[in-house]
Amino acid sequence: MAHIDYYFSMLSPYAYLVGDRLEQSAKRHGATVTYKPFDIVAAFPRTGGAPLPARHPSRIAYRAQELPRQARKLGMELNMTPAFWPTNAAPSSYAIIAAQKAGGGDLPGLVHCLLKACWVEDKDIADDAVIKSCLEGAGFDPSLADSGLLSGAETYAANLEQAVSEGVFGSPFFITDSGEKFWGQDRLDDLELYLAGKI
């Protein structure tokens, strides 16, 4: 059975655009997925990247065209100027880590609920009420937002170190157990072809 480590940032609009496609692809090919939220802002200077305000104007302008274009292609809503962005990505990341450890709910649904809250619904995903609402909606105990803080923080830090050591430099980033790497939501089709043994 194939396995995918999925590295992503809760600040990433491209991670929002993944939607449910990763999980659907994994199901079609009998693959498992480990969700690994990480601190992309801390990763940038270690991997040659830069936060959005520090990028060249041409890169910022391209992003402003590309994101809405990709959203339209996927039939997804996207707010390019969310009310709470950037925000503290740690609390929602901790909740995802705690939910994955606890099991029993819809983890992909939780991730998408939180990302949609930021990129469509103008909610602050650092807000405890927003996190607990998404946990409950995805079938998890909302108290995981509190009880998972310590272990979540430790895993979040470990995810960053593992991401850097494995060559992750952006979000979303997918690594198979055979070491194949795919960067970007627009590479999910390639990941699917790889899982199918076609490339």
Rank of each mutant, 00 (worst) to 15 (best):
L107P: 12
G75E: 09
G105I: 15
L78K: 03
A129N: 09
I131R: 08
E77C: 08
V120A: 09
R69L: 01
A89G: 08
K73M: 12
V111W: 02
K123H: 04
P82E: 08
S92P: 00
P68N: 04
L115S: 05
R69A: 01
G104Y: 10
D106R: 12
A126M: 03
K101Y: 00
P82Q: 07
P57D: 04
A95Q: 04
K73T: 14
A90I: 12
R63P: 04
R69F: 05
S58L: 15
Q70E: 13
G105C: 05
G109L: 08
W85S: 10
P82W: 06
A89H: 06
I96L: 12
E66N: 15
K101T: 15
V111I: 15
A102I: 13
D128K: 15
R63E: 13
A117M: 11
Y94D: 07
E121D: 14
R55S: 03
Q70T: 12
A64T: 13
R72K: 09
A61Q: 07
S58T: 14
A89F: 09
A99I: 12
R63Y: 02
K116W: 02
D124Q: 00
A117G: 00
A83T: 15
I131M: 07
A99T: 07
D128E: 15
I125H: 07
R55N: 03
P57I: 13
P57W: 11
H112V: 12
Y62I: 07
A117V: 11
I60Q: 15
E66Y: 14
L67A: 14
W119N: 06
L110Q: 12
E121G: 04
N79Y: 02
D128S: 10
T87G: 06
G105K: 12
Y94F: 13
W85F: 11
P108I: 04
P86T: 03
R63C: 05
D127T: 11
S92I: 11
D106C: 03
H112Q: 15
R63W: 01
D106Q: 11
P108N: 04
R69V: 09
L78G: 01
P68Y: 02
G105Y: 04
P86G: 07
I97V: 13
N79V: 01
R63M: 15
N79A: 02
P91H: 02
C118D: 04
M80A: 03
Q70Y: 09
L74P: 02
L115K: 00
G109V: 12
P108M: 00
A129Y: 01
L74F: 03
S92C: 14
D106W: 13
Q65M: 05
L107R: 13
C118V: 13
A117D: 00
A102R: 14
A99V: 12
K123P: 01
